[in-house]
């Protein structure tokens, strides 16, 4: 830190002021409005709506499916990131760019396409449902499939740069000390990758919890069985039950904030662990 000096660059007041006004109007006041609306209710009313049987079932479906999808994504995301960084193969750049498809493809398109693929007569569904007798589309497993699609890039993109940064000496040291490849992976590489992997998992989970577009087509949307919380909010709105929708939205919002806080802490943790090896180039004496 240098001593406090006069600001040379112009535009501080303008840019900060504009950003604050914009964010307040677009984000802060609307979110405040949601909280204010729910505060008009008594606690007992709020609690009754938030813990109604159908709402509880919706939370179970939402969080259960999101958790399963995030676990699958953590595993395959790590695998894909590893393969992309460590192995050479033809078309690697193409595959690397392609991983971001779920970021670029609108969720409604993903929704109708996955439904068509996994329906009983679809390309995949005819084998999974027709031969194995396992129903995917129009049932909870379909939700998991959609959420895997939505969440995979989050894990790959968080883990990939960390794998790139691993210095070969670390693995060489482990190997020269007699560790097998598997031991090196579990004892040396995995702990290094763990904060990033956990962050990717949390990002994928957090996105999955709020996801709507891709899920509603494939879910079947049966109350108590395959109805996700965002859909329940919409069906309450369609019945002009704004209060009910507000309560569920507050519940989801609180959970999202807790997740966001957790993700920020994780990233801070990961960054601190990281800076132990790479001295920050920006810090000058």
């Amino acid at each position: 830190m240098t001593t406090k000096k006069h600001r040379v660059l112009p535009g501080f007041g303008l840019s900060l002021g504009y950003s604050l006004v914009y964010l307040s109007l677009l984000v802060l006041i609307p979110l405040g409005g949601l909280i204010a609306r729910s505060a008009q209710m008594s606690l007992a009313e709020f609690w009754a709506i938030a813990t109604a049987e159908r709402a509880l079932a919706a939370y179970r479906v939402t969080f259960g499916c999101a958790l399963l999808a995030a676990i699958v994504n953590a595993f395959f995301g790590l695998l894909v990131a590893w393969v992309l960084v460590r192995y050479d193969f033809w078309g690697k750049r193409f595959v690397d760019a392609f991983v971001d498809l779920p970021f670029a493809l609108p969720t409604a398109v993903a929704g109708i396409t996955l439904t068509t693929l996994y329906a009983a007569n679809g390309w995949i569904g005819q084998y999974v449902e027709g031969v194995l007798g396992y129903k995917v589309a129009f049932a909870p497993p379909g939700i998991v499939v959609a959420l895997i699609f939505i969440g995979i890039p989050f894990v790959v993109r968080t883990v990939q740069p960390v794998i790139e940064d691993i210095e070969p000496e670390v693995e060489e040291a482990a190997a020269s000390l007699g560790a097998t490849r598997a031991q090196t992976f579990v004892k040396v590489l995995l702990p290094t990758l763990f904060p990033a992997l956990l962050t990717g998992f949390a990002l994928s989970f957090s996105r999955a919890v709020g996801e709507y577009g891709s899920v509603i087509f494939i879910a079947g949307n049966m109350p108590m069985v395959s109805e996700i919380t965002p859909l329940l909010i919409i069906s309450k709105l369609e019945q002009y039950d704004v209060a009910g929708a507000t309560v569920l939205a507050v519940v989801m919002l609180v959970i999202s904030f807790v997740l966001l806080l957790g993700i920020n802490l994780l990233q801070w943790w990961a960054a601190n662990r990281h800076s132990g090896r790479h001295v920050d180039a920006g810090v000058q004496a």
């Binding site: 979110l31 949601l34 709020g210 577009g213 919380t229 909010i233 709105l237 989801m252 919002l253 999202s256």
Partner: peptide
């Protein structure tokens, strides 16, 4: 972090 549906509701 906000679900799109909640964003619309706001």
């Amino acid at each position: 972090a906000v679900s799109p549906v909640v964003a619309g509701l706001l």
